[in-house]
Write a protein that binds this DNA or RNA. Structure first.
Lengths: 127, 127
DNA sequence: CGGGATACTTACAAATATGTTTGTTCTTCC
DNA sequence: GGAAGAACAAACATATTTGTAAGTATCCCG
């Protein structure tokens, strides 16, 4: 395993500017309408399909299923089928998913916390 | 001005789960196909329209204009028209834009740096 | 004078994302 | 015996996003 570069590395992100870089695909999934919400929802712990559906207000079953499949294919969440009947399946973040969820959470969290200032068009008092 | 809650506050983000929360709109713009890239591109400093277009490979003029207008309306970037002819306009991040760009940059950066591990489906060694 | 650059805008068309409805296969509850 | 819940899949319709091509006004360059 290669060592991970530091999180504060500030290289210009050359690749992500390239239209055909695979990182774009993952970034797209993560920041799709439901992808990020699903990741955030799973941060506290694993959830079942129906629990996720109830928690992420407004999502349809089709979208939830599709979103979960994408994130699973990207290796960000893990699906566990208990093989019972009636069906019982739950989802949880993989280690990579936790890393990404944490970062998306910071983004969403900052926006939410500073929403009043943003809506007012006022420049929030940057630290 | 209200005081800002700390950046490491880990509340569950109740609002963002609500379909009609305004934070969704901003989050959508930021994480739209081009929004985040534009923010990242502007991190080093202001750029003109055509410079942005060249830097963000693959973007059309239409999309760039639209993206910039959204981000401007959200108060994340500032547009300055030099009033010259031929036109000369440049864009730069507002303080709020810098905050958000920094967080999006961390997300995109982490993905890009750990891309090999992600593509391999291997769980990266989380710190 | 023709050509190119600048920063867009406005149709129009295609691609993608999302939603709705129905169905499946069992089980438990009333 | 219905009825409801579980975790989806498939078909179909629509909405939203994105792209393409062309046009606008003005200037400078050769």
């Amino acid at each position: 395993m290669t060592h991970m570069t530091s999180d504060t590395d500030a290289r210009p992100l050359a690749d992500v500017f390239a239209a055909d870089c695979p990182s774009r695909r993952i970034l797209t999934h993560v920041s799709s309408r439901w992808g990020g919400l699903a990741l955030i929802a799973l941060r506290p712990g694993s959830l079942r399909f129906s629990e996720l559906k109830r928690r992420i207000g407004g999502i349809s079953e089709r979208m939830l299923a599709q979103t979960l499949q994408q994130l699973e294919a990207d290796g960000l969440i893990a699906r566990r089928d208990h093989g019972e009947v009636p069906p019982r399946v739950d989802y949880r973040l993989t280690p990579a998913g936790q890393e990404i969820a944490a970062r998306y959470f910071e983004l969403a969290g900052w926006i939410e916390r500073n929403l009043p200032d943003l809506l007012a068009g006022a420049r929030p008092p940057v630290a």
